[in-house]
Amino acid sequence: MLNIVKREPRYGWGLLNLRDEMNRMFHNFFDEYDQRENFWAPSVDIVEDKNKLTLTAELPGVDKKDVKISIQNNVLVIEGEKKQKTEKKEDNYYRSERFYGKFCRSFTLPSELDSEKIDADYSNGVLTVTLPKSDKVKPRQIEIK
């Protein structure tokens, strides 16, 4: 389960991030090695503005039919499978950096969202989920009488 936590954006794979990445790698390697083999996690951005939260997930080459989005008790779950196109036996692989297989990510949402109006769209390999805030928490100007 992943809570929404404010974090500095990461642009590229700069050397400054290298130490963090190395730490993360060592930490994860022994813990998660077995599970990692057939499991990957798409990169996700969440942007907040006045009226809504917008979640974008990178799912290149994933069929729309293979993605499932559900929400229950303020937890948004995105799961699915990235399938490799029919593999021909005679093909040789020179290099493979892409991941395939099942994925699942869940996010605990702040309670002030209007879960009835959640909208999802998939285009160009990016899944966009729009989560509008409920009217109660939207900033509102109060007139002085």
Binding site: W13, E58, P60, G61, E90, Y93, R95, R98, F99, G125
Partner: peptide, 25 residues
């Protein structure tokens, strides 16, 4: 920090080579 390398896959078949690159969005 400015240039990154998207993941690729390179395959060879009888008739040619195929490079596929992930560029979501």
């Amino acid at each position: 920090s400015q240039v990154y390398a998207p993941p690729v896959e390179i395959e060879e078949s009888k008739n040619g080579y195929r490079i596929s690159m992930e560029l979501p969005g």
